[in-house]
Deep mutational scan, measured.
Amino acid sequence: TGEEYIAVGDSTAQQVGDLTFKKGEILLVIEKKPDGWWIAKDAKGNEGLVPRTYLEPYS
C-alpha cells in the first residue's frame, strides 16, 4: 500500500536502485525518506528511488 503520485517530469535512473519514469506516469510511493528521495513502484511493478521534486499528489 502507499500513496499515488503523478510524475511532473521525466527522470532517468542515475545509479542502481533508481527508478526511471516518464512525465504523466502514476507512481505508488511506498516510503518517504527525509533526504528527498522516495521509494516508489510503477505500474509494471518496478521499484526504486525517485526524486520527490518530480512528483505531485494524484487525485
Score class of each variant (00 low, 15 high):
2 G>C: 14
26 I>E: 01
32 K>H: 04
11 S>E: 03
16 V>K: 12
45 G>F: 03
58 Y>M: 11
36 G>P: 03
57 P>M: 06
53 T>R: 12
43 A>D: 09
6 I>C: 07
24 G>Q: 02
58 Y>G: 05
32 K>F: 06
33 K>P: 07
25 E>G: 03
38 W>S: 00
12 T>Y: 12
16 V>A: 12
41 K>R: 15
35 D>Y: 03
54 Y>N: 09
29 V>G: 00
56 E>H: 07
4 E>K: 14
22 K>Y: 09
13 A>Q: 09
44 K>C: 13
49 L>E: 05
5 Y>D: 00
41 K>T: 08
35 D>E: 05
47 E>Y: 13
40 A>I: 07
17 G>M: 06
47 E>S: 10
53 T>Q: 14
28 L>E: 05
2 G>Y: 14
21 F>W: 04
7 A>C: 11
27 L>S: 00
29 V>R: 00
8 V>P: 03
49 L>K: 13
10 D>H: 06
51 P>L: 14
24 G>E: 02
7 A>M: 05
51 P>F: 15
30 I>D: 01
59 S>T: 13
1 T>I: 13
49 L>R: 15
15 Q>D: 11
57 P>K: 10
13 A>D: 10
48 G>K: 02
34 P>E: 13
12 T>E: 12
9 G>P: 01
19 L>P: 02
7 A>H: 02
36 G>M: 04
57 P>R: 07
22 K>N: 07
7 A>S: 05
7 A>Q: 01
52 R>K: 13
50 V>I: 07
51 P>N: 15
45 G>K: 02
7 A>E: 01
34 P>W: 07
55 L>C: 04
40 A>C: 15
30 I>R: 04
13 A>N: 10
35 D>G: 12
46 N>T: 07
52 R>A: 15
24 G>W: 05
25 E>W: 07
2 G>T: 08
21 F>H: 01
8 V>A: 06
1 T>D: 11
20 T>C: 10
9 G>D: 12
17 G>C: 08
21 F>Y: 05
54 Y>W: 08
35 D>S: 07
46 N>P: 00
8 V>R: 08
37 W>C: 12
6 I>G: 01
35 D>M: 03
32 K>M: 07
2 G>H: 11
22 K>L: 09
43 A>L: 10
12 T>S: 10
2 G>E: 08
20 T>P: 10
31 E>N: 09
21 F>I: 08
32 K>E: 04
19 L>D: 01
33 K>F: 11
59 S>Q: 13
15 Q>W: 11
49 L>C: 08
23 K>F: 05
28 L>C: 10
38 W>V: 05
37 W>S: 10
12 T>F: 13
25 E>D: 15
55 L>P: 01
27 L>M: 06
26 I>R: 06
45 G>R: 02
10 D>A: 07
30 I>H: 03
28 L>A: 04
44 K>W: 14
5 Y>I: 00
17 G>L: 05
41 K>P: 00
58 Y>I: 12
8 V>C: 13
54 Y>R: 10
16 V>E: 13
21 F>D: 00
22 K>D: 04
3 E>S: 08
23 K>P: 03
47 E>K: 11
38 W>F: 06
6 I>N: 02
54 Y>L: 15
36 G>R: 02
43 A>S: 14
9 G>M: 15
3 E>F: 08
51 P>I: 08
9 G>K: 15
41 K>S: 06
15 Q>A: 12
8 V>Q: 06
26 I>A: 03
53 T>L: 10
8 V>Y: 04
59 S>D: 14
16 V>C: 12
30 I>Y: 06
50 V>P: 02
26 I>N: 02
19 L>S: 01
59 S>G: 12
6 I>W: 05
14 Q>E: 12
23 K>Q: 07
31 E>F: 11
39 I>H: 08
54 Y>H: 14
2 G>M: 11
7 A>G: 03
36 G>Y: 03
40 A>K: 00
32 K>S: 03
30 I>Q: 05
18 D>S: 14
51 P>E: 14
47 E>W: 11
17 G>D: 05
48 G>E: 01
47 E>N: 06
58 Y>A: 09
45 G>D: 04
21 F>A: 01
5 Y>H: 05
11 S>R: 15
43 A>Q: 10
18 D>M: 15
49 L>S: 08
58 Y>S: 07
8 V>G: 04
10 D>N: 09
27 L>E: 00
36 G>E: 05
51 P>R: 12
2 G>I: 09
31 E>A: 11
18 D>K: 14
15 Q>C: 15
24 G>H: 04
46 N>H: 08
9 G>T: 15
18 D>P: 05
38 W>N: 00
57 P>W: 05
14 Q>K: 12
7 A>K: 01
16 V>P: 14
31 E>D: 10
31 E>G: 08
36 G>K: 03
13 A>W: 12
11 S>K: 14
19 L>A: 01
14 Q>A: 12
24 G>N: 05
9 G>C: 15
8 V>W: 05
11 S>V: 15
58 Y>L: 13
54 Y>T: 08
18 D>H: 15
5 Y>P: 01
6 I>D: 01
24 G>K: 02
53 T>K: 13
38 W>D: 01
36 G>C: 04
23 K>N: 05
41 K>E: 04
19 L>C: 03
55 L>F: 05
47 E>C: 14
38 W>M: 03
46 N>A: 07
27 L>F: 05
37 W>H: 09
22 K>S: 09
56 E>F: 06
34 P>L: 10
50 V>T: 03
12 T>P: 13
21 F>L: 04
7 A>T: 11
3 E>A: 08
43 A>H: 09
39 I>G: 02
21 F>E: 01
10 D>S: 10
48 G>Y: 04
56 E>R: 07
12 T>G: 09
17 G>I: 05
14 Q>F: 11
19 L>E: 01
33 K>V: 06
2 G>N: 08
34 P>A: 13
17 G>T: 07
40 A>V: 13
5 Y>K: 01
8 V>S: 06
51 P>M: 13
54 Y>S: 14
56 E>S: 07
29 V>L: 04
35 D>H: 05
55 L>G: 00
27 L>V: 06
38 W>A: 02
23 K>G: 04
15 Q>G: 14
6 I>S: 03
44 K>L: 12
31 E>H: 11
24 G>D: 05
2 G>W: 14
18 D>F: 15
53 T>Y: 13
24 G>A: 03
9 G>A: 15
40 A>W: 02
21 F>V: 07
56 E>V: 11
49 L>P: 06
9 G>E: 15
4 E>T: 13
9 G>N: 14
33 K>R: 14
10 D>F: 04
27 L>P: 00
18 D>A: 14
23 K>H: 06
25 E>T: 06
27 L>G: 00
43 A>T: 10
15 Q>P: 05
50 V>C: 04
4 E>A: 14
34 P>I: 09
34 P>Y: 09
10 D>K: 04
57 P>H: 06
46 N>G: 05
49 L>Y: 12
19 L>I: 05
9 G>L: 15
23 K>A: 09
13 A>Y: 08
53 T>I: 13
1 T>N: 12
30 I>W: 03
14 Q>C: 14
14 Q>D: 10
1 T>F: 13
44 K>Q: 12
15 Q>Y: 10
34 P>D: 13
37 W>A: 07
21 F>Q: 01
20 T>R: 09
26 I>Y: 04
23 K>D: 03
52 R>F: 12
21 F>T: 02
28 L>R: 09
51 P>G: 08
35 D>Q: 03
53 T>M: 12
21 F>P: 01
46 N>V: 08
30 I>V: 09
40 A>Q: 01
50 V>F: 01
34 P>F: 09
4 E>G: 05
45 G>W: 02
56 E>M: 09
4 E>L: 15
16 V>I: 12
46 N>D: 06
4 E>M: 15
25 E>C: 06
47 E>V: 15
24 G>F: 04
51 P>S: 13
45 G>N: 05
49 L>N: 08
5 Y>V: 02
1 T>S: 13
41 K>V: 14
13 A>V: 08
45 G>V: 00
16 V>G: 10
26 I>F: 05
10 D>M: 04
5 Y>T: 01
48 G>M: 03
42 D>E: 01
45 G>A: 03
20 T>I: 11
36 G>D: 06
28 L>Y: 11
19 L>V: 03
37 W>L: 10
17 G>W: 06
45 G>M: 04
42 D>C: 03
19 L>H: 02
31 E>M: 12
39 I>N: 04
34 P>G: 10
58 Y>E: 05
20 T>W: 07
